[in-house]
Design a protein around this nucleic acid. Sequence first.
DNA 1: GATTAACCGAGACGGTACGTCACGTCTTTAA
DNA 2: TTAAAGACGTGACGTACCGTCTCGGTTAATC
Lengths: 193, 193, 193, 193
Amino acid sequence: MPGGATKPRPVRGRPRTVGLDAAIVAAAAELLGEVGMVGLSMDLLAQRAGVGKATIYRRWESKEQLVIDVLQAIVEPSPTPDTGTVVGDLTAYTRMMVERFGQGRMSDVLPHLIEASCYDDQLRASLDDYSRQRQTTLRAILRRGIERGELPKDYDVDLVVDTVLGAFVYRRLMSGAPLNEAFSKRLIAFVLP
Amino acid sequence: MPGGATKPRPVRGRPRTVGLDAAIVAAAAELLGEVGMVGLSMDLLAQRAGVGKATIYRRWESKEQLVIDVLQAIVEPSPTPDTGTVVGDLTAYTRMMVERFGQGRMSDVLPHLIEASCYDDQLRASLDDYSRQRQTTLRAILRRGIERGELPKDYDVDLVVDTVLGAFVYRRLMSGAPLNEAFSKRLIAFVLP
Amino acid sequence: MPGGATKPRPVRGRPRTVGLDAAIVAAAAELLGEVGMVGLSMDLLAQRAGVGKATIYRRWESKEQLVIDVLQAIVEPSPTPDTGTVVGDLTAYTRMMVERFGQGRMSDVLPHLIEASCYDDQLRASLDDYSRQRQTTLRAILRRGIERGELPKDYDVDLVVDTVLGAFVYRRLMSGAPLNEAFSKRLIAFVLP
Amino acid sequence: MPGGATKPRPVRGRPRTVGLDAAIVAAAAELLGEVGMVGLSMDLLAQRAGVGKATIYRRWESKEQLVIDVLQAIVEPSPTPDTGTVVGDLTAYTRMMVERFGQGRMSDVLPHLIEASCYDDQLRASLDDYSRQRQTTLRAILRRGIERGELPKDYDVDLVVDTVLGAFVYRRLMSGAPLNEAFSKRLIAFVLP
DNA sequence: GATTAACCGAGACGGTACGTCACGTCTTTAA
DNA sequence: TTAAAGACGTGACGTACCGTCTCGGTTAATC
């Protein structure tokens, strides 16, 4: 299933080969795992996908738009933890975040997209979209806490999402401070009333 | 005044022309304002500074290291606000942050450094340094609050710094959510006990 | 009227639209005048002729085969001059050659066909055909001279054709020497006994 | 020794590596022999010569200018035959021409240059130069004939050069007529008084 | 009248080559 | 040894054509 960034196709002429989007995205995902965002050149990608470069440029505005689709395709929808309490859920959630976000092959993807989105308004929008999508799990946990009465009715979910994810991002990308369980614990204690 | 990233110089032979570091940094600052981080190529910079490329590489490991020095040189040390209360100080501080960070010419510099620091350990360290330096104002405000008794003695300054700056960074770089006074107000209310 | 290069068509199914050959050749002629042999891409030609690319390839082996048909269609059969003497006829003939061959829009067509015919045997044959066709006027002049007794019975018409046309071609394509009336006069004097 | 097409170099900065022109030309000659003018891509040439593409573009305006230098470098100055008589010399000369020009690896080079020179004035001039250089042997034979008294003092050397070489070129490139000893014999007989 | 097969415009497709640009290093002359 | 200048190898970029293919739809001759 092609991402939202794919351009609309005209009605006339040969239709775009179905599944090619997916094949290209898959090849890109493979390469991202092997060589990272650096090293993911359009030539290499085209070759790996068994596709002409023009075919890629026909479907995506830029490499970055494509990579956003890769992210969408790759990230299995992390299951919302359900431990019965907000604290438990947040603990499980942050543990997962630390694992995923802390290191790994693709850790250079997001930084690259952030930088690229400075020069590309469409990409900016796509990245915003993606970011908001990735908030859903955390939002769900907090909203359930409100429903259960663990959190006050006027609990500022938006703000907590910004601060929790923000703290992670800030430490990971800027201050270089470690992301670990101890930090998560302090953070959880801090944002809960 | 050249930054700390400048390599040590040997003792023998012709001494390095004094002030060349500064001239190069100045030219880089100029170009950053004109063409942004994209468009700041080493060839262009060398030409603008009236300098050979080798001269730049002799003094900095990379373009990014140099740009960090540019940041150091450019950012006048924001004066710590002193309104008498933590709330007042934080309000003044966030207002300044919104102004500076929200938009502007150089808003693509930090994203670029973040991305580049994925592939360059030295740069990673430099950027961490820079980030921590930029925390000092906020830290001072909070510490003074503790001294004045406005904040509890065990107030987790580190964590608040991470969450406040993190929330700003996250909205600016990822979710694209607006940075404005309303948000600042909610954020301040949230992090104060 | 479509040239001899058009492929044979099968009997069954929808017959080829009559006049499409001519329309394509006309569009090609137009484009040759506007953008020359460079710039005459198949995509552009198809678009201009309001035709699918496949339709062109169905009728001609290559762009060059098509262009030969264009030449056939364009070049009105130069009337054989008849001044009463061989010298007069040759003078008229060479004057016409200088005008046509010397410069003009389409002066890049022949060189292109020559080069292309190095890699395409069919085109080679077509070009040979075309070249021999274009010899007829000169041959007629010389043969008439023999009939009238102005030229000896064993006059080597073939050779004179080769040398006269060869000299023109050589100067035009290789040495870059000028083609003018003075040269023609010397040439005529030289080849007549 | 680099060809006449090489651009002048500035005095300052690193001088161009000596012998690199020659190395590139040699690689090009090699490739021309292996893959012909088609197949001689700039990427391939750069790779074979162990050189960056930019280095080639720095020294030659186009692939064709370079190839002219290749021709200059390759064609060993054919020794002017000296049999004692003009007929003998011309016979030897035409035999050599038939051998060289008739077929062979590089037979697509000249046609390509001819076509390319339609769109490139500088190349046009270079090709003219080259063509005139290649006339010297034939001119020498004829001039010696005049000195020896075999040919009249007012013998039109220029014109004979044009017709002889022209006839060869015309048959080879346009009419496709065969180049052989019989034709040479007729041609020689024709141009001698 | 239904079927069939080639035609048609449009444009996607896998390739290949192009010429440019930036990188970081090297090599000259001069100070 | 530093400096300005600029050549060097490398490798990615995005574009342009090529000749083929695949759609939906059309048009005649055949069944």
